[in-house]
Write a protein that binds this DNA or RNA. Structure first.
Lengths: 159, 159
DNA sequence: ACAAATAGCTTGCCCTACACAAACGATTAA
DNA sequence: TTAATCGTTTGTGTAGGGCAAGCTATTTGT
């Protein structure tokens, strides 16, 4: 009697794989990002800022799930390089609204382009479509939004 | 003149997202795994061992992309708990063949079950199908193999 | 047979990422 | 006015993890 491939859901937790791949990626990314004066976690910060627009500093510390103290340092780095700006919130002047500057957006894109080789290396087993699917899923998981197809793709001058 | 949404491939690098999600996952996983005497990186190790079977220690250090010295410590932990075994390789007795024990496999499954809540939390924005797709892509990216549909799903007694 | 070279283990050193706490200024809210 | 809140600075502590040296057991090349 042949066991039918009923696919008994052998648990399939993505956590460990996520961890593993993130490490491989990060190791390579470090050296690529270094010439740009960035580190992986700066890139994460910029990425979050791009996707969710301006936000209070502790909201950011919330999404990054990182201690507020360390977020300050992170933002200090980014602000010194002119990649982000801290603006006083008009309705509560205690708060800083953190926004990505134009330069920040440009540098982010540049960094992402520089990471092409890294991604080719780590995600080499996936074809272009699969990578795009992966990106979509990660994005959705990270933001809660099921991908947004912005028509205004002003990001024309890519790499 | 309206710009057509030609979808100019706005780069879409997964690195930062991977990093971000892995962190969120790891933070939660730590507390869930603690009662089992495990840490995230132990789980990664066990996962790798399960998927690629017995392998030399430095091969493992290669896949984990982790310094050999630290792999030793990692394996010491796992061996002390009887989750892995180091067997002398017959054809080269300098080498250790690291294998997952039965207990190791069981504990791994148990851990994965315990992580259900964590994954529900972090990947909450993805439905069941999407999560399975994600898992498949991560697995493929990590192993190079485009998923393997083992008919012998002996892993029946899941959670 | 003897001199490398190799796999693994141990120890020690160092650096970096982070969490946590305390104290402060500015601002807002009770 | 007093209390609470946002951000900042300055510690302090811990853990992850790279790197090097020195050791044993074993294999390989001459």
């Amino acid at each position: 009697m042949v066991e039918l491939p009923v696919v008994n859901q052998p648990v399939h937790r993505s956590g460990a794989l996520l961890d593993h791949l993130a490490r491989r990626m990060r190791l390579r990314a470090e050296s690529v990002l270094a010439p740009l004066g960035l580190r992986p976690r700066h890139l994460v910060t910029l990425t979050v800022l791009r996707q969710q627009g301006g936000c209070s500093q502790q909201a950011l510390s919330g999404t990054l799930e990182m201690d507020g103290t360390n977020v300050v340092g992170l933002l200090n780095d980014l602000e010194r390089d002119g990649l982000i700006e801290r603006r006083r919130s008009p309705e509560d002047r205690r708060r800083h609204v953190v926004v990505l500057t134009d330069k920040g957006a440009r540098v982010l894109v540049k960094a992402e382009c520089a990471l092409a080789a890294v991604e080719d290396d780590v995600l080499g087993a996936l074809d272009e479509t699969q990578r795009e699917t992966l990106y979509g899923l990660l994005q959705q998981a990270a933001t809660g939004v099921p991908i947004v197809c912005t028509g205004d793709d002003a990001d024309t001058e890519q790499c």
